[in-house]
Design a protein around this nucleic acid. Structure first.
Lengths: 109, 109
DNA sequence: GCGTATTACATCGCCTGTCAAGGTACTTCA
DNA sequence: TGAAGTACCTTGACAGGCGATGTAATACGC
């Protein structure tokens, strides 16, 4: 019916903010990190990733800067802002709420 | 950033199937049931609800029939099919998977 | 020096689920 | 009479995810 990514729609920004809250990172690395953390179950598509960065930067949740080119290509690093931390906190709360609802509504009986 | 419904996008069909697995029901009642089960946190919009019914019926996951008019208006009842039960099972598995990923990715540290 | 792989970023246009807005129709009750 | 509740339905806009495509640098074997 639906694939994993569609079921995560809307949570992308929160996931990225949660990763950036651990420290600055760049697109390629973030996608690898997320992929590894989920055992390959979640693979951010590049288009998804970079549009999310644009969206988050536009919203003031992250800032970016060009870092050292290394092992092949230039990297654009992203850094979470204070506003981003608040958005992350809000996103986590929403996740708790959503999780509770679905657990309740999909209960096996 | 996003509202609850957007964060549940894609799970709507599974939610509806889970409710119908308990017994036939109709649109208005289902929306009330879901609303009550979530303490009012989730309110299916009518357009969302009825487009979901069309989609599920199209997919063969549910069938419908006109029931008795009662207390105001005619009702169209929906019934889950065998295919629908399989889709529900699949949907529940996907939810387990998604929940695991997000718990992992949004962990507080 | 050349082809291929890998790293790394970026955009365009389509697809799909949600929803605001609008509509129909019947019953109940003040 | 009219407001409120029950109950269904459709259209068009919107937004996020993504396939496809493009750029550009380094690394490595041959």
């Amino acid at each position: 019916m639906a694939n994993t990514s569609e079921l995560l729609r809307g949570h992308t920004d929160t996931i990225l903010l949660a990763q950036l809250a651990k420290g600055d990172s760049y697109g390629y690395q973030l996608s690898k990190t997320v992929s590894e953390a989920t055992g390959g179950a979640l693979e951010f598509k590049e288009a998804t990733l970079y549009t999310a960065f644009r969206r988050l930067e536009e919203a003031g949740a992250i800032t970016s800067y060009w870092g050292e080119a290394s092992a092949g290509a230039r990297r654009r690093y992203y850094s979470i802002t204070e506003a981003g931390k608040e958005a992350l906190s809000e996103g986590r709360k929403q996740w708790q709420s959503v999780r509770g609802m679905l657990d309740e509504l999909l209960g096996k009986e």
